[in-house]
Design a protein around this nucleic acid. Structure first.
Lengths: 205, 205
DNA sequence: CGCGATCTCGGACACTTGTCAAGATTTTTT
DNA sequence: AAAAAATCTTGACAAGTGTCCGAGATCGCG
């Protein structure tokens, strides 16, 4: 038997959780603009339509808010990336799709990727996000490894490096491309595309 | 003819510059401990033997201090790395030396590398360090490219990717290894060594 | 409608921040 | 040794920070 109080609490919980998401999504945009070092609850609030008191009402403190934002980001991120594992029938097609996908992701939401790298670095200084960041990193690694395995299958070979190394290599290319993209280098996306296309064949024997 | 005033000014300049270096070196250690987001002039001063007013006497403001620290870091960095380009007579030796050198650099000063990555990310948010960071990045890239070329020569082949991509790939491996190292993964250094050794042959034809 | 629960705002608080300046101390010059 | 210049300390200031709270506004249900 579910009591009225329980139902009401659950309803409140749903509503509460919904509002939290709403605030976190707005805060995430502000965070992406500012970066961790320059983000205070007040400036975040100023960048949104909400008051700073409201943020404190829905989030215990600043760490709670940012942690929640990071988790929201993860959800958006894997969803976006997973649609990237397109259906391709030749190795070349897959390599192209992979390069195009990452280049598009770069140009589409550079500020979000910048924030991601920022938070990943911060996790090396503070252990508050460390767990969440590690989880995101691992899910990205798995996402990428699916691509490498698919490429190996299509080219009738086997991957010649670990999932960790494969992810590190792709991530290196992406981060460097992001740096150049934000510094105004026009060819950043094309360079990334080319880099990915040539990297993939190197990872299978 | 050099006037007395000129000489005195130069003497003062030397002394002044010397003291600046001294303060910056101490501040650099504090910065590496704290990270950019948590570093204030006062907390930096508390981590050293100097007063916060003294920092302000030798540096116009916080940005001036950090910029100077970054440049000091560069000097230490290229000096350290360049001794890494050891003399090797076979490709295998060079690959091993390269892997060992980077793994050692990782275990030797992980906090400095952490700071470097932090500042590189911050340069994507603020354009104050952007020039200095880009210069360091380029000098690191050149350092690494010398290794790749040397490896190509020894194995009687030619590099099959751009200096930018080569640097991005190595940097990706290193950064991921640093993340794991600081998270307490015991095998981080060995993994890095292995990753480097297997990456190098993939970059030449 | 009315009333209690929930939500929202804006201000108050204690504290930290960057910056600065007036004086104390040391070094250098005359 | 006196004067001048430099080095350094200490404390003050305004602005910004995280946190908390109380008074309205709004909502949901009897």
């Amino acid at each position: 038997m579910t009591s009225a109080a329980t139902v009401r609490r659950r309803a409140r919980g749903n509503k509460f959780e919904e509002r939290r998401r709403e605030l976190a999504d707005a805060a995430l945009l502000a965070l992406a603009d500012l970066g961790y070092a320059r983000a205070s609850l007040r400036t975040i609030a100023e960048h949104t339509e909400f008051s700073h008191g409201l943020l404190h009402y829905y989030f215990a403190d600043k760490i709670d808010l940012i942690t929640y934002c990071v988790q929201r980001y993860k959800a958006a991120c894997v969803q976006r990336y997973d649609s990237l594992v397109a259906e391709a029938s030749t190795p070349g097609q897959l390599a192209n799709a992979c390069g195009d996908g990452l280049a598009e992701a770069l140009g589409d939401a550079p500020l979000m990727h910048r924030l991601w790298y920022d938070l990943r670095i911060q996790s090396m200084f503070e252990d508050t996000f460390r767990k969440e960041v590690a989880e995101i990193d691992e899910s990205l690694q798995q996402m990428l490894w699916r691509n490498v395995r698919a490429y190996a299958d299509l080219s009738e070979g086997t991957p010649s490096c670990s999932p960790e190394d494969a992810y590190a290599l792709f991530d290196g290319l992406f981060q460097q491309a992001l740096l150049r993209y934000l510094a105004g280098t026009e060819t950043a996306q094309d360079d990334l595309r080319h880099g990915i296309r040539t990297l993939l064949p190197r990872l299978v024997d």
